[in-house]
């Protein structure tokens, strides 16, 4: 078989490669508030300050300990998120809130800089060089308002900043949280289930029909012959090496199995084995007697 015959398979495999692994690259800066108003969220010290919300877009847990936050493109290691804190493990589709109070020593979730409108916040990977995500705070963003990102694709992997600042939602995923589940949507769109049933039946048939067609095609390529049916008079019983037995053999096996399973041929076995002693020079004394001279 020539290597070019494997080409479709190799292309299919290559197509499936871009699947993303679950690591810090799955994190995004999902929301930023630069200047709090008098009724915003307070940090652990009772202060009101700006904050940065991180969101894990993946379906696996991501540890962002060791990553950096900065508002200065020339200083990517401005504020490190400490390693070794179990709380930096962010579950799938969860958020973490980092307060930008200006002193990173305040705790794990505190950045060593403050935020102001017009600047850009960067999330940097734990290598200190790779910018994972950034978000520019609009120059005229009013106090107490935040800028968030929302998913714009069906898979909810690609996020884009909102057009305008909005009401802050610290610590909760952005977008509609009361979105209906797929089942609820189907209950409204397809109350009798006919559409789903029709589509599903079509997909099942298509999948298996494609498998059928492709396998016939592949078989012809691999075996290099068009008519796969056995030629008249072809040996049916004696299987050749590397080939399966013919239908007669299968039929015989099937009949034997059926007879065996239906208990019509076997007698009730006593399950008692009787060993009749057989005389040998090991156990028969008579054979070991010295033969007397005649």
């Amino acid at each position: 078989m020539k290597a070019k015959h494997f080409l479709p398979l190799i292309l299919l495999a290559a197509w499936s490669l871009p699947a993303r692994s679950q690591n810090v690259r799955d994190l995004i800066i999902s929301e930023v508030l630069a200047e709090p108003d008098s009724c915003g969220i307070v940090d652990g010290y009772g202060r009101r300050c700006g904050w940065i919300e991180l969101f894990n877009t993946s379906q696996g847990t991501v540890n962002f300990g060791g990553c950096y936050l900065t508002d200065d493109r020339t200083d990517l290691r401005k504020s490190i998120i400490p390693k070794g804190d179990l709380r930096t493990k962010l579950g799938p589709r969860q958020t973490a809130l980092i307060f930008a109070g200006g002193n990173g020593a305040d705790g794990t979730f505190y950045a060593g800089f403050t935020l102001s409108p017009g600047e850009t916040v960067y999330l940097v990977s734990n290598d200190g060089r790779t910018v994972i995500d950034s978000l520019q705070i609009p120059a005229g963003m009013p106090k107490g308002m935040s800028l968030g990102k929302e998913a714009h694709d069906l898979r909810q992997r690609e996020f884009v900043p909102n057009d305008a600042p909005g009401t802050p939602t610290p610590g909760s995923p952005n977008g509609r949280q009361d979105a209906e589940s797929k089942a609820q949507v189907m209950a409204v769109k397809d109350p009798h289930g006919l559409i789903l049933a029709l589509v599903s039946v079509s997909v099942v048939f298509s999948a298996l029909a494609i498998l059928w067609a492709l396998f016939i095609l592949l078989f012809r390529i691999v075996e290099g012959r068009k008519d796969s049916r056995p030629a008249p008079g072809e040996a049916a019983v004696a299987p050749t090496p590397g080939k399966e037995a013919d239908g007669d053999v299968y039929a015989a096996i099937a009949a034997a199995l059926d007879l065996y399973l239906s208990d019509t041929v076997h007698d009730a076995e006593p399950f008692v084995i009787t060993l009749r002693p057989k005389a040998s020079s090991w156990n028969d004394k008579r054979q070991n007697f010295r033969k007397l001279p005649k």
């Binding site: 075996e223 056995p230 590397g242």
Partner: peptide, 10 residues
Amino acid sequence: PKPRAVSQRE
């Protein structure tokens, strides 16, 4: 009809 022989490669 009898099923045809199937090779190990298939």
